[in-house]
């Protein structure tokens, strides 16, 4: 499943996509994120799944443009720690 967390507003689209078929809930993205954006828990969109899965913490879902801002400076490309930490390439950012 492709779980998209985030939002679209007048200024743009900001989504973190988690491929739950690839994610095994290892939690490396949780450790890697300096701002507590990622959490691991039960799969909200698949209640019959037993394996935990990575999601975006509820308190960040409506402001990830800002929560993820420090990892996305306007100048200089920086690799995102959450993406680097994921061994399964299960994470993607839309912006």
């Amino acid at each position: 499943m492709l779980a998209n967390y985030g939002y679209q507003d007048g200024s743009g689209s900001y989504f973190i996509t988690i491929d739950t078929d690839k994610c095994d809930g290892c939690g490396r993205c949780v450790t890697a994120c300096p701002y507590g954006v990622m959490v691991v828990g039960p799969d909200e969109a698949d209640p019959l799944r037993d394996l935990p899965v990575a999601t975006v913490a509820d308190e960040h879902r409506r402001k990830i443009k800002y929560s993820c801002g420090p990892c996305k400076p306007t100048s200089g490309v920086r690799e995102l720690p959450c993406l680097l930490a994921c061994p399964w390439e299960a994470l993607a950012h839309s912006w």
């Binding site: 499943m1 492709l2 779980a3 998209n4 967390y5 985030g6 939002y7 679209q8 507003d9 007048g10 989504f15 969109a45 698949d46 879902r61 409506r62 402001k63």
Partner: peptide, 14 residues
């Protein structure tokens, strides 16, 4: 009826 992809926008009123 199993979800294969989803998104929810509840940040913005538009």
């Amino acid at each position: 009826g199993k979800v294969s992809s989803f998104l929810m926008n509840d940040k913005c009123a538009a």
